[in-house]
Design a protein around this nucleic acid. Structure first.
Length: 694
DNA sequence: CGCTGTTTCGC
DNA sequence: CGAAACAGC
């Protein structure tokens, strides 16, 4: 290594570290950065933009905008602490880019913080192996969670399978989550002249206008996240328990995008909220105390989403309860488009979809409403909906969204039942009792009295006329009647059980695998074509010049922008669906990639007693063995944590989470036992027998 | 009232 | 299903 030449800085002159930033874009309570700073050598902060790795989950426009802003903010903070500029690299493969960066800088150490999505689990494991092979010391840390997934287990040492039990255990752990770390006092900058940065491009010309609007409503960056937290703690938090059911977002924390990109430490949030809670508890302010409990529960759901992803890396693509894989989804792209455009004829659903489309934001309750409608009334494949959320939400988060959609779809043991259809009319009066939310987002209905605002189809003709509404013309009739939806849902469920039974019989007859898996419905053709178009674009490196006025706009309540929104809404009917302009990624070849991953991860860590483990996560005992026994030789890719306990080396799944072997494994090993262990599954079983006998 | 059958709702 | 809110006595 060339480190001997760099003796100008303090600390160990022979030491130079790379800190790899990902979704931990902060200097406060950032264990990887703290460790590098503490080590005393020169620190090279780095960011690699490698969205191709995300496969179909190439970040959407608003997410990319957020990253670009947040990186600028981070760079400025690092410079203030003495670091050189944030080194940026563009690559289709972050591991390759990191290795190159390490060679460029002559670094001997690499520090980063853990991520728990399936892609990262595999990639980070591969990185550790490759760096270790070159003699580089790698240390990785928990910066994203209160407790690492493997720390939270039931009395038998097994991972929890229901949220409530999981969260109760988190709240009653023997030790508190680590206290947040202060920012490093000083970071030694190395000589980065040999270490060029590459320009990162996060938006094209067509997106610039919409992105400029975003900046009016949101300020990315860790210090702004901190301000948002303080504002929330001192303001809306106390009334959270009362206000959280209102559809307009005045009472939500608005912290989710900050948390997603790691601008805000969840441990800091946790500790500060608990302190508030203690104060309010002592004051006897029960409502405020309850608010803290409820808010922390939503933090807990975020924790649980990582927990689920870690223990079931395929949870963003496949239902955890096996029988759901046989649900006959309605593959209807026209339904899908109508849902996206907010033209279902159910005002609350339509208002939500238009808000999402226009602003990239949606209140949690409304997310449940629109996704539940998607799955239960339209019976569209839930992964389509999840993908759309991914493309459009400002706080798009694969783990959280997978949890949410699986919950709605009834494919988690503690989900709500699939056969219980939520009535958007009733929910409308619950979450939006005066119809203000609907009127804000559906200008067509602005003159409709509150009495009819959530069910215009029942309104007398005279009322509709007075409001200027002609159903089926300027506002649609319900796309599907709820009674029809219920009937179709019952039918679909009994078909699901028949298929499930048939599959089970097939497997009992010695077949390796059961019948097909309805969760593998591909994304719609038009979106596939979009992929191709984006691919062509990326390859040619062509910058789009067409301004797409239908692109998402900014969250705002100002009247001027409301008017702009009105125009766009009026457009919806005849404009082609342009929402698909959030790029999909350029070089996505699922099968090839999958094989790559299998090869790449066939390292020593995946071999236990010489036997290849298809998927360590699916088999708790293996996972635990792996997790708890990192050998000394792997010291470079593990670390010594609290109380001297060794924190595990990452044990990635064999594939990104959807290989055929994995499917067999999971259906057999995981989901069936999963099914057997859970009360609700039994409930569903009873129901199925009932419906089959009809 | 306080008791209890019924409905609602849950990540 | 099971806790909690609710309605009815």
């Amino acid at each position: 290594m060339s480190a001997s030449s760099s003796s100008l800085c303090g600390g160990d002159p022979a030491m130079r570290s790379v800190v790899w930033f990902r979704r931990d874009l902060r200097v406060e309570d950032n264990p990887a950065l703290a460790a590098a700073a503490r080590a005393g050598g020169e620190v090279v902060p780095a960011y690699v933009w490698s969205p191709e790795e995300e496969g179909p989950y190439y970040p959407g426009r608003v997410s990319r905008w957020w990253i670009s802003q947040s990186l600028k903010h981070l760079d400025a903070s690092l410079r203030r602490l003495g670091a050189g500029k944030l080194v940026t690299r563009r690559s289709a493969d972050a591991v390759v880019a990191l290795l190159q960066l390490v060679r460029d800088t002559g670094a001997t150490h690499v520090y980063f913080n853990h991520l728990y999505d399936p892609i990262s689990l595999v990639r980070d494991h591969r990185l550790k192996e490759m760096l270790a092979a070159e003699g580089i010391v790698v240390q990785s840390f928990n910066a994203d969670l209160l407790y690492e997934p493997w720390e939270v287990v039931d009395d038998e040492g097994q991972p929890f399978t229901m949220f409530t039990a999981f969260w109760n255990r988190c709240l009653s752990m023997q030790y508190d989550p680590p206290a947040p770390l202060l920012p490093p006092k000083k970071i030694n900058s190395g000589d980065l002249s040999m270490c060029p940065s590459e320009d990162l491009i996060f938006e094209d010309d067509s997106e610039r206008g919409s992105n400029a609007l975003l900046a009016r409503a949101w300020t990315p960056g860790w210090q702004n996240a901190d301000k948002a937290l303080t504002a929330f703690l001192n303001g809306p938090l106390a009334d959270y328990s009362v206000n959280r059911k209102k559809a307009d977002s005045a009472s939500t924390s608005l912290l989710s995008p900050h948390l997603h990109f790691g601008e805000l430490s969840v441990r800091k949030v946790f500790h500060l909220v608990r302190m508030k809670q203690l104060v309010w508890s002592n004051e006897g302010n029960h409502a405020a105390e309850e608010s803290c409990t409820l808010f922390l529960r939503s933090i807990g759901l975020r924790e649980y989403s990582r927990y689920l992803s870690f223990n079931h890396p395929s949870s963003h693509e496949r239902p955890l309860l096996a029988h759901l894989r046989f649900f006959p989804w309605v593959v209807n792209e026209s339904y899908f488009k109508i849902w996206r455009q907010g033209r279902t004829g159910y005002p609350l659903v339509d208002a939500g979809m238009r808000e999402l489309w226009a602003t990239g934001w949606l209140h949690d309750r409304i997310r449940v409403v629109v996704s539940s409608f998607f799955v239960k009334v339209l019976q569209l494949p839930w992964r389509w909906g999840m993908k759309y959320f991914w493309d459009t939400l400002l706080d798009a988060d694969l783990e959280s969204d997978a949890l949410g959609w699986q919950y709605i779809t009834g494919s988690l043991p503690d989900s709500r039942e699939l056969d219980r259809i939520d009535n958007p009319q009733f929910e409308g009066y619950k979450f939006d009792p005066h119809g203000e939310y609907v009127r804000r987002w559906i200008p067509e209905l602005v003159r409709l009295p509150t009495e009819w605002i959530h069910h215009p189809w029942d309104a007398p003709v005279s009322v509709l006329q007075a409001a200027g509404i002609e159903l089926g013309s300027n506002y649609p009739l319900p796309i599907v009647e709820l009674d029809a939806a219920k009937a179709r849902l019952q039918e679909a469920l009994s078909e699901m059980w028949q298929l499930e039974a048939a599959s089970r019989a097939t497997m009992n007859n010695g077949m390796e695998e059961g019948l097909g898996d309805s969760s593998e419905v591909p994304f719609p053709e038009e979106l596939q074509m979009e992929v191709d178009r984006q691919r062509a674009q990326a390859t040619a490196n062509v910058v789009m010049t067409v301004r797409r006025r239908e692109d998402q706009m900014v969250p705002t309540m100002t009247s001027s922008l409301n008017r702009a929104e009105t125009e766009v809404s009026a457009d919806l009917g005849n404009s082609e669906d342009t929402r698909a302009q959030v790029p999909f990624h350029a070089h996505f070849h699922p099968r090839v990639e999958r094989e790559d991953m299998i090869q790449n991860t066939e390292g020593p860590a995946l071999r236990i007693n010489g036997t290849h483990q298809h998927n360590i996560f699916q088999q708790p005992q293996n996972h635990r063995r792996e997790a708890l026994a990192p050998s000394v030789s792997e010291a470079s890719s593990s670390w010594t944590g609290r109380e001297g306990a060794v924190v595990p080396v990452w044990s990635p799944p064999a594939a990104s989470g959807h290989s055929e072997t994995f499917a067999a494994d999971e259906a057999d090993v995981s989901s069936r036992s999963y099914l057997d262990r859970h009360p609700q599954s039994h409930r569903l079983m009873n129901w199925s027998q009932l419906s089959q006998s009809l």
